[in-house]
Amino acid sequence: MFSITLTIAPVFLLLMVGFGLRKSGFIGPEVWAGLDKVVYWVLFPALLFTKTSIAPLGGDIFWPYLTSLEAGIFLSGVFIWLMIPLFKKKYTKESMGSIYQGAIRYNTYIGFAILVAIEGPEAQFLGALATAVMVPFVNVLCVSTLTTLHGDPDTHLFKRIMKELYRNPLLRAIAAGVAWNLTGLGPIPVITDTLESMSSATLAMGLLSVGAGLQLRALRTASLPIILSCIGKFFILPAVTAIGLYLWGITGLPAFTAFLFACLPTAASGYALAKQLGGDVPLIAGLITIHTLVSMALMPFVILLAQYLYM
């Protein structure tokens, strides 16, 4: 346990460095906003394209990943939907939409950083595969749910979903990487080396950005939203994923990676979507912070359990 904690400590220390830099005022808010854009629109897509363009496709793990992870995401969301009638008098539809996002979104930067720390850079293609499986599904569910709960009734749901999927740079990068992979042409001279250099900066910059976005004042968020989203995120989603992996007979590093990604805290992208669709922005900001802090405490145990089950 102690060795695992030491191994992943730099991941969470980078989060704290980002938080400390923002709180100190040493770096202005406009710089952090720019860093968010660079990581989300440039650096992380470069990493995903690089890994998916050379990853072995059509192997034995795509369908197990697809069914296991998406079943976990879906049932975690179903749990929140079942809670809506019970708490509709206490919380608004906007609040329940934010709780829903908290229960099914996941932070890819933290996932990739921990995967590299534990298993090395060669495991990143499995993280890219998990991301390729989860990104479209999570976005479809979140846009559908938020639009249904409190979106503009004049907005056609299908058009809204297609718009959000089309403008998602991660999905574009994955699609482009898979398309290039299928050509069988291999690495692109000069371009691949450039993208590899960009990829190497992604995780550190991404973690600093996530840390800068933490809002400790959000710890005052009501206890019930915290409990509901944590049940979905840290219990239902990993449990269903683990059952799916068991039924498929997946073990080793592929199973370890899928289980790790199923246990990640919710992502900051939920904040932007809540703003776009009129959600409870302070609540999702609080859930992002709380999930990240909970993850810091739980992750050594998650890794120990995953190693015991699969490695």
Rank of each mutant, 00 (worst) to 15 (best):
L21T: 05
R22W: 11
S24L: 12
G25F: 11
F26T: 09
F26I: 11
I27K: 02
I27A: 11
G28Q: 13
G28L: 08
V31C: 04
V31N: 06
W32I: 12
W32L: 14
A33M: 11
A33T: 09
G34D: 09
L35D: 03
K37T: 13
V38C: 07
V39A: 04
V39R: 00
W41V: 09
L43A: 05
F44V: 09
A46I: 02
A46P: 02
A46N: 03
L47D: 10
L47G: 10
L48W: 05
L48A: 10
F49I: 01
F49V: 00
K51I: 01
T52D: 05
T52R: 00
T52M: 15
S53W: 00
A55E: 07
P56F: 13
L57E: 05
L57M: 12
G58V: 06
G58L: 13
G58D: 03
G59N: 04
D60L: 06
I61F: 13
I61C: 03
W63Q: 08
P64C: 06
P64M: 03
P64E: 01
Y65L: 10
L66F: 15
L66Q: 10
S68D: 06
L69F: 11
E70F: 01
E70K: 02
E70H: 01
G72V: 07
G72R: 04
I73P: 04
I73C: 13
F74V: 15
F74M: 15
F74T: 14
F74R: 12
L75V: 10
G77W: 06
V78M: 11
V78H: 05
V78Y: 04
F79H: 09
F79E: 07
I80M: 15
L82Y: 02
M83L: 15
P85Q: 12
P85F: 12
P85Y: 12
P85V: 10
P85E: 10
P85A: 15
P85K: 12
L86R: 14
F87V: 14
K88C: 03
K88A: 04
K89S: 13
K89Q: 14
K90S: 10
K90F: 08
K90E: 15
Y91M: 06
T92E: 13
T92M: 09
K93P: 02
K93L: 15
M96I: 02
G97H: 09
S98Y: 06
S98R: 10
S98T: 12
G102A: 14
R105S: 08
R105L: 11
T108H: 02
Y109L: 14
I110M: 09
F112W: 02
A113D: 08
A113L: 07
A113I: 08
I114A: 05
L115Q: 02
I118G: 00
E119S: 10
G120W: 05
G120H: 03
G120S: 06
G120K: 07
G120T: 06
G120V: 06
A123H: 05
Q124C: 01
L126V: 05
L126H: 08
G127H: 02
G127Y: 00
A128Y: 10
A128V: 12
A128L: 11
L129S: 12
L129F: 10
A130M: 08
T131P: 11
A132M: 14
V135H: 07
P136M: 05
V138I: 15
